[in-house]
Simulated scan of single mutants.
Amino acid sequence: MPLTVLLAAGAANNDRYGPHIATALAGAGIAATLTDQAAPETVDYIVYAPSSPLQDFTPYRNAKAVLNLWAGVERITGNPTLTQPLCRMVDPGLTEGMVEWVVGHTMRHHIGIDRYTVAPDRTWNHDCPPLARDRKVAMLGIGALGETCARALKALNFHVEGWSRGPKSLPGLVTHQGQDGLKAALSGADFVVTLLPKTPDTENTINAETIGWMKRGAVILNPGRGALIDDEALLAALDSGQIGHATLDVFRVEPLPQDHPFWAHPRVTVTPHIAADTRPDTSAEVVAENIRRGEAGEPLLHLVDRVRGY
């Protein structure tokens, strides 16, 4: 008997992702009916986005797992009706996009591209930038995305140091943990990349105190979560020159309000949450693999720890 897979990601996402998921399920040899309408007691798996109208999971008592289409799960982990296993999305296509954004903007600031593309007075500025080996990058968050970005920057010869809240050792990378480790990672950093999840413990990781630990003129790149940064502290640091530039892809309110000071600040670059998006084709393969694993009795990929929140 075919499985029933409920696609509960909202109408637009259902249309965008549905055909790819159906193709991936068929390619994996999984007999399944993919639908956006089903009697709750018949549903075996739920493919989900937090913006979905589905917010009460109580009727889906037979569902074996909820498979989130996004990497972020902070909008669903606190749902008291969710008792099914929850898996977040770790999408190879999303990871590639994140690496390209982080490396691209790090190189932009490292080489000083803005100095040469914005020169209305036609000044011949012959100052050469340092080499990558003379620049320190602090990678805050060394999960799947952070580690991959860290290794890509290290391959370009940057001095990369990673930080995580709990103990984590990654071969070939310098890593720090805890509050003391955060200060060590940020001290002397030329570039700070924030790729932490949003949890009560990570909110405002970048604040007036931690900004003070960075090298004067450091650049902050935030493609992680808007709440990781204290906006007022960042604006003050930009105005004082403690932070030389901030390139921001995520914000506390999205779309970023038209009157937000980030838009007009000369030392801020705003990108509209494009650093890493779930790709329909590659994410569909992850969904199909997790359903295959569930049916084979194998451990699910990217299972969320409800206590940690990711």
Rank of each mutant, 00 (worst) to 15 (best):
R115Y: 03
Q179S: 15
M98K: 01
G172D: 13
L156Y: 05
M139R: 00
M98V: 00
G178L: 05
M139Q: 10
G178K: 07
V103Q: 13
L153V: 06
K183I: 11
H105Q: 08
P167D: 09
C149H: 01
R122H: 15
C128S: 13
D134H: 13
V102Y: 03
R133S: 15
I113C: 09
V90L: 13
V99D: 09
D91M: 06
L145A: 11
R115D: 12
M98A: 01
L131D: 14
L153S: 12
N125L: 09
H110I: 11
L131K: 02
A155Y: 06
L170G: 03
H109L: 12
G146Q: 03
V160K: 02
P167F: 01
P120N: 13
P167I: 01
C128P: 02
T95D: 10
L182Q: 12
T117C: 09
V102E: 02
M98D: 00
P120R: 10
M89P: 05
H159Q: 15
D134F: 08
D114V: 02
M139S: 05
M89V: 11
R151P: 01
R115S: 04
C149W: 01
R133L: 07
A132Q: 01
V160A: 09
K168E: 03
N157R: 07
N125Q: 08
D91G: 10
V174A: 08
T117L: 12
C149A: 10
H159E: 15
N125A: 15
V174T: 12
L145C: 07
A138S: 08
R133A: 09
H159Y: 09
K154G: 08
R115I: 03
P167T: 01
L86T: 00
R108V: 14
R122N: 15
W163K: 03
L170T: 00
A119F: 06
H110S: 13
I111A: 08
C87T: 06
V90F: 13
D114E: 11
A144C: 12
K183H: 14
W124A: 13
G97D: 12
C128E: 15
Q179M: 10
Y116D: 10
E161N: 03
V99R: 00
H176Q: 11
K154T: 13
W101Q: 04
A150P: 03
G172Y: 07
V99E: 04
H176N: 12
H159S: 13
G172H: 02
H176D: 11
K168R: 11
K183M: 07
L156A: 09
N125R: 05
G166Y: 10
L94S: 01
V99T: 04
I111T: 09
W101L: 11
K154A: 15
V90T: 15
L86C: 06
L131E: 12
T106K: 14
R151T: 06
G143M: 05
L173Q: 02
Y116A: 04
Q179C: 12
D180M: 14
